[in-house]
Design a protein around this nucleic acid. Structure first.
Lengths: 341, 341
DNA sequence: CTGTTAGCGCCTTCAA
DNA sequence: TTGAAGGCGCTAACAG
């Protein structure tokens, strides 16, 4: 814990100090700082030079206490080390900054109780609203009731057991299209490396994978499906396992960047000509020299839309219960190394 | 701008409400919430159940106004889209969270005036301190005087024209060692792809590159030095240019991940056996099948150290002007694909 | 155009 | 163990 009382601004001048020096009331100083027009040019200048002389800086904490709110929004992500979420955070930043809002950022490391605590703390800090990438299955602590109507937008995963604004990726479509491409290429045994099905993205992407097969009059071989994978090593092992088995798949579909990486390692290790498809574009995908079908989407855009949606909700005011809105960011399929060297 | 007054907590219960319901004074509620021992068990329980019944949540803004400070630290980075800075941010988060501090994150996009404004705003918001990756050459607006003694730690780039705590990477050593390895491998024409020399990292890494040559009794060929590169395309062009020239280098040293990427593209495009070395490890570096010498370091650790340093400074209090400290995070050289398939 | 009053919600100080 | 008073720094509402 921080022990001493923070003293960076100890003894900092207040509005009264400025007022005294400029020989006006604190109210006048307040007006000048707010660009209130009803101040004579003469006093305005006197005030500003007093501000300058004292190095005065308005105390936002006090101001916000008086006005309500905080001029901040909360952003809670599950894993900032994942480029996906840092890009999302950047998108949120951008829009927030344009609107004069600051971003209070927290990382949950996928721990629901930590998320609960952070959200609670954000509310206590009077954030004007928050954007959350929900960690667990239950989102009850994010419900409007729990937050007393504080505006909230969920990103990347939809609300479960509650109603709220959210911004999603077109998980189903992306998975279906990418899998479809593999089928068009003639693949008939396409393995599936998936994250936990309890996660929305996991379930949707699996649905897409399945639907692509059905649309082609095919059925995936359940033995080629591995779900619940969480990182590169587990994905690599699963991929090795699939590729070494009998009737090994000729292609693999992976539901996220870490799983794709694991699959790449496996394919490289075995030196077999297996086609890979997966979510999330990554640097140097094109120079790997592997046949790679990537489902790409704009992570910044998710952040930007979430933030805009949040601001709309904030501006609507508490009296206007807009129905919950949902927006879906499209995916785009990119093909690399179809002409492998 | 946000138009309506934030109303998430409009009409939220206050301490007085809780007090009334529990039939005690607001002071007693405050004591209970603070775990003050001098409250009888009976009243404590009555208060807590009133808190529960009303869904009361202490208003941190008001609390902080009274106490001073904010329980927040500011973090200002240049580019959150760069994994380096998002990892740094994650490290800061971790330590801050352990100490009950929240992180107010901003992105400057390398714009000094934006940095100035953000820092000013953080100060106005009474942050307990801030960690800044300074964007430009001049850091005068970050000087203790400008911030009235607010604790500040610079990360990744040292203070210029002022004195302040900072956490750096061992840029010189890393560059020297990696370049040295190339020389040991027998390379005598090693090209240099560098970021702007005005940046500290750019200058230091160039020094290291040069020093490695001198240590081996060699001198780099100035014609093989390209500096001021800022992104993948510029680096790629520079690399192509060097590799197509007469007496083309047999190896290239790159000062950061983007430049290394550009070099990789160039090498792949030309299909020439050029060894590459560069700062910043990246995913799949090992499966590229290229001879790659990487200077790696723990970006999270920079964030953790910076945050710890900041907290120390905060705890020291304004009365204790510790001398500015500087800590250097070590680098580690990793070799990939020295046995290319 | 400018000032006075009052209070945002909380906590420190002092008194009971 | 509890409460009353006062004020952190600022600004809305109302004078003048």
């Amino acid at each position: 814990m921080v022990q001493h009382r923070p003293g960076g601004d100890a003894g900092a001048p207040t509005m009264r100090d400025v007022a005294a020096r400029a020989q006006v009331s604190a109210m006048t100083v307040s007006r000048v700082l707010k660009d209130d027009s009803r101040v004579s040019e003469a006093t305005r200048e006197r005030v500003l030079s007093a501000v300058d002389a004292l190095g005065y800086r308005r105390n936002e904490t006090a101001r916000r206490l008086r006005l309500g709110g905080s001029g901040m929004i909360g952003l809670v992500v599950t894993n900032l080390a994942n480029p996906f979420y840092s890009r999302l955070a950047l998108g949120v930043q951008e829009v927030a900054y344009e609107h004069g809002l600051r971003v209070l950022l927290s990382n949950t490391a996928e721990q629901v109780d930590r998320e609960r605590g952070l959200v609670e703390d954000l509310a206590a800090r009077q954030v004007d609203g928050m954007i959350v990438v929900p960690a667990g299955g239950s989102h009850r602590h994010l419900a409007p009731a729990a937050l007393r109507g504080m505006p909230i937008v969920l990103a990347s995963r939809p609300p479960a057991g509650m109603d709220a604004d959210c911004v999603l990726v077109d998980d189903f479509d992306g998975a279906e299209e990418a899998t479809g491409r593999l089928i068009e290429d003639g693949h008939r045994r396409i393995g599936f490396l998936g994250n936990p099905p309890a996660l929305y993205t996991g379930a949707e992407r699996f649905r897409g994978y399945w639907a692509a097969h059905e649309a082609a009059g095919l059925a995936p071989d359940e033995r080629h499906v591995r779900r619940g994978l969480v990182d590169v090593p587990t994905a690599e092992r699963a991929a090795l396992d699939l590729l070494r088995g009998t009737d090994a798949p000729t292609a693999l579909f992976c539901t996220n960047n870490r799983l794709t990486q694991g699959a790449i390692r496996a394919v490289r290790a075995l030196g077999v000509p297996v086609a890979l498809a997966g979510f999330d574009d990554f640097d140097l995908a094109d120079v790997l020299g592997l046949p790679l079908t990537i489902v790409s989407y704009d992570a910044d855009e998710i952040g930007r839309r979430a933030c805009q949606m949040l601001i709309d909700r904030i501006n609507a005011g508490p009296g206007t219960p807009l129905p919950a809105r949902r927006t879906v960011v499209p995916t785009q399929v990119i093909r690399y190394g179809t002409d492998p060297r």
